[in-house]
Nucleic acid binder design. Sequence first.
DNA 1: AAGGGGCATTGATACAAATCAAAAGAACAG
DNA 2: CTGTTCTTTTGATTTGTATCAATGCCCCTT
Lengths: 247, 247
Amino acid sequence: MDNTARLSETHAHSSCAVRSRGDDCRFCGVRHLSICQALESDELDLLEKMASDAHFDERAVLFREEDEAGVVFNITAGVVRLVRSLPDGRRQVTGFALPGDFLGLSLEKTWHFSAEAVTGIVACRFRRAAFEDFSEKKPHLLKKMHAFATHELGLAQDHMVLLGRLTAEEKLASFLVEMKRRWSRVAGHEAGLIRLPMGRQDIADYLGLTIETVSRVINQMQRDRRLVIVPDGIRFVDQTYFDDLAL
Amino acid sequence: MDNTARLSETHAHSSCAVRSRGDDCRFCGVRHLSICQALESDELDLLEKMASDAHFDERAVLFREEDEAGVVFNITAGVVRLVRSLPDGRRQVTGFALPGDFLGLSLEKTWHFSAEAVTGIVACRFRRAAFEDFSEKKPHLLKKMHAFATHELGLAQDHMVLLGRLTAEEKLASFLVEMKRRWSRVAGHEAGLIRLPMGRQDIADYLGLTIETVSRVINQMQRDRRLVIVPDGIRFVDQTYFDDLAL
DNA sequence: AAGGGGCATTGATACAAATCAAAAGAACAG
DNA sequence: CTGTTCTTTTGATTTGTATCAATGCCCCTT
């Protein structure tokens, strides 16, 4: 049984103020993926003293658009969807946060998007003000955060091209290639399997499509022997087809 | 005659290595809009010594996607379009840079988008390495750059919602409201006039539409007495209509 | 095993925006 | 002023994707 599935069975303890971290930053599975890679061993010790574990159940809301950002998160397990909503209910999923991803890079006082657990989540949680103070004393951490924010800006631009200029088929291919690339960096992933823990509606809202179109395109790809649909995801059969279509 | 029109008559001197700045940072018209707002008077003097003026003609290319980012720019006059292109010629305009906007916030070694002059441009130019060194010695400048990058990330997310979930009419309304808001911060703008120095194709590529749809929607808005088309831009007649439609 | 609720899939039809095509306007050079 | 070119506008038609409407399929609970 994989890690995320196991975690989704746990219960949320997000209101628990007591530190109860079983792990040590130095052995953290996502350290090499996260902003913590900027820190030396002694700095990690300091950071660890500021951290608390946060667990969220599937469908739990980590925070809402316009909420005050009292804390920031480093996701260690599970998948989070980042959502901007319109008053009439239309949604745009602006991204999926995977293990190693940081929520709160901007250090701004309010969130500008919502974050909802797609699977059970484990995250390293910090009080925003404390994290901000820490980052001001460690310029290389601030620089790393800036590099991460900047990298996200590049991804956001990629996504604009996808939303504005790609066909439904190209959008799906790009999404699947992106997910394959991102999972390949996560420890414990099964090579070849592209996990899709999010539902079809989330994928549709990420790609600016409807759920029906997502379903039709994926199933057509399966009929065309480009991929096979498996429990919890898909597998590429014709990698070249996807590489040629993707952004 | 407005400033930008005058500037578009000048010739590019971007290869000129000699500093020839007629102005003083302390009297810079875009200082309060730009990252320079983070700096004290003595720091501005230092920065000014690093700066050179860059002029670009209409249609000039400031830099291309994948080019090495040897320099960074602070736009002081004119409008620049930021473009990502697909191999088959499809384009997505990811943004328009107006006076006060900074190109190169990321401090990365290569550009990830092209920048093309929509009008004649005047910019403050810095060698990237020198600017980066300076920012490392002035943590409040780095923090300000991070705040600007973070703000752009928010705008990018807004744009994703626009591209993924708005109708053509809503896209145009959002674009026009955005332009009105942004021009209102630029010194010397005429209140009420929404300048649109970019062509219809640029607007289409910014909104994920075709030039025909942009033309049709704007002209329909004029027929419906929502706006009037004037030389070099438009004017709102029914502000409420736009506020209700815009993101 | 049976019932129920949430997703996902599939089919039929509608429609918003793209595409194709041409005319009308601006901008510019000689 | 006059021809040339480029951009914008307008019209006719097509089309990709959305919408509307069932149906199927898990997974969960009892």
